[in-house]
Amino acid sequence: MTTTVGIVLVSHSAELVAGLHLLLKQIGSDTVPLATAGGTDDGRIGTSYDLVLAAIRRANVGAGVIVLPDLGSSVLTARTVLEDHPHPDVTLVDAPFVEGAVAAVVAAASGADLKTVVEAAEEARNVPKF
């Protein structure tokens, strides 16, 4: 079929996002272009403009990219990157970090288009955990 929608995970913590990446591999992310941007350039807690930009470029294989921030300055940094490098097929998504990533990965792995992957991530807010 066509190419797969890419997913970028932006977190204050390299360890947090690496752990989430491992969980997503269990759920079937091996066919999804998934890139992470965790922590600052020198490995501290925070966010990095350059890491976010590089992750978006890695994840974009032609079908678009959703960017999932964990919270706070992850949102601000991702927003700044997207303002400086506007691309119609790169979308910042407001969703719970873990649940949104899980739902987005499954949708992308199923061959969904960008709009559907965005909706899957956003809907994660409304699905009860139990």
Partner: peptide, 14 residues
């Protein structure tokens, strides 16, 4: 749990 749930969802979408 998570792994079979992911498998199930991806299969159902087909």
């Amino acid at each position: 749990h998570a792994r079979p749930a992911g498998q199930l969802a991806r299969a159902a979408a087909r």
